[in-house]
Amino acid sequence: MAHTDEIVEDEGEGIKPIIILKDISKEYEIGDWIVKAVDNVNLSIFETEFIAIIGHSGAGKTTLLNLMAGLDTPTQGEIFNSGVKIPDMSEESLATFRIFNIGFVFQNYNLISTLTAEENVIFPMMLAGMTLDLRRKKAVELLEKMGLADRREHLPFQLSAGEQQRVAIARALGNDPPILIADEPTANLDRETSDFIANLFKELKESEKTIIVATHDDRLIDVADRIITYEDAKICKQDVVCDILKESDRKIKK
């Protein structure tokens, strides 16, 4: 099991790395300035693993998540997600890949402003080609689960921040993707809502999904199998709370 920046490929019998970052760097040019958001990072994330990425604001956590999800391209290095080399994919195939493989919860929710809560949840299901009745049924179920049954027909600006965040999570879960990536899902939320979201992630951990969360929230960190401390564009520390590979071995032996 990798505790630092080394790459682990196909260790264990049952569990494989689902995301592999190999010598990844990402730089942004802002005028004359070059800002390094990711600096030569190596990382493997395993199926069903719950990863918490912690670090100061501006450390580059969001960029790292965006790279994993294929929302951004690295300046150098290779990213494999579900066995697919992300930077090599065309725009169109990457879009299709995201529909079926990744649920992404943005830090600032990013709901489509002209669609209602229900339509926002339905949108990725529609892209996935799900039937009208099925996607409506599923959207209603997800929104009920998020405690938003009575807010289905409201537009994003008519919802509170916590409600918008819950709609964003419901949207990310619409196509039941194997990977869920969430960027500070409890930031700027009231205690009650952030409790709700933290509990939700605990539940999701049981659903055999790979979950990667950038967070400062102890309740989410406590749930994580591995905690990655990310500072100054680098992984400076990895703490394995629960060695998922050994857990998996144990399950197989049983």
Binding site: E92, I99, I112
Partner: peptide, 13 residues
């Protein structure tokens, strides 16, 4: 912004 979100979610160009 809406279109960018749609793209991020998986809509094609």
């Amino acid at each position: 912004k809406d279109f960018l979100i749609m793209k991020a979610v998986g809509a094609q160009n």
